[in-house]
Amino acid sequence: MKNFIKPAVFALAALAAGAAHAEYPGDGKISFVIPYKPGGGFDTIVRTFAPALEEVLGTTVVPDNIPGASGTRGGQAVYRAEPDGYTIGIFNIPGLTVSEATNRDIGFPLSEITWVANLGEEQYGIAVKSDSPIQSVADLCALGRPAKMSDTGVDSTSSITAVISFNILNCPIVNVTGYGGSNDTMIAVMRGEVDATLKPIGSLAKYVASGDMRMIFTLTKNTVLEGVQNATEIGHPEIAKFTINRVVGAPPGTPADVVAKLSAALEAASKSAPVQEWASGSGTQLTFMPADETGAMMSDLSSFYAQYKDLLSK
């Protein structure tokens, strides 16, 4: 029972820390909000960063899972917290950007969040079953019927990326959604019920390496994999703009000096040996951006997705 009480006590401690009004950097506890349950990608990156961040800042960092309402409940908790630097959170970007662009209520204005840093960025690729006759995006668009793709939910970032980029390519697709997780969408390709799937390159790479799938395209400006076409090569470099980001934010009105300290601490943490080691072992791509760059990227993304509003609201 001891092990069961411990996290509960930690959670209480985190709540208490959130309410404290200590001057930053003081010796209060930083509550790092994860808007999903323990075990997912966002949870893992926060739990990996937390000890490294603790070391840099010299304060305790407590990962705090606040799941619910497609990741918006955790975001709301950060939005409502005191802007004292003791509550920060990780945000699903561009998932939330897209929700906002399509007028879906996420419970808080994304633009008011103080952006602290970008921890990771991944780009997309398209893969088919390894024995599929499809060799390129051109083949995929010339099947004589809409190409079938697999995805998790309609509002998942990969699904949005598939819908918009194939619209740009003027290529009809049927995006079969409802698969339980991104792994299940790849299994669907292997089972042969869909033709291809668009997923982060890192996720596809595992199945490409095991020989179950073959990559036919990457949504990147430059060549990532030898012999695999990229966005520039097919004349649409703009679709390389689709990424998936792990962005850290703080409550609106967090003082600039606190943000700067947090941002610097996160940068140092992302360069630390344990984090680097974890990233290379788990195939995670760490792309650090400081506060100002992250803020710029966020408003850039907002206007980028706003132009596809009609397509996404369909």
């Binding site: 075990g39 299994i187 595992k206 072992g281 788990s282």
Partner: peptide
């Protein structure tokens, strides 16, 4: 891939330890 909520958490533990469960 997980077949149940428990195996999903088992895989999460592997990821947390810097492993990359896959095929």
């Amino acid at each position: 891939i997980p077949g149940s909520a428990e195996t999903a958490l088992f895989l999460a533990i592997l990821v947390l330890h810097g492993m990359d469960p896959g095929p």
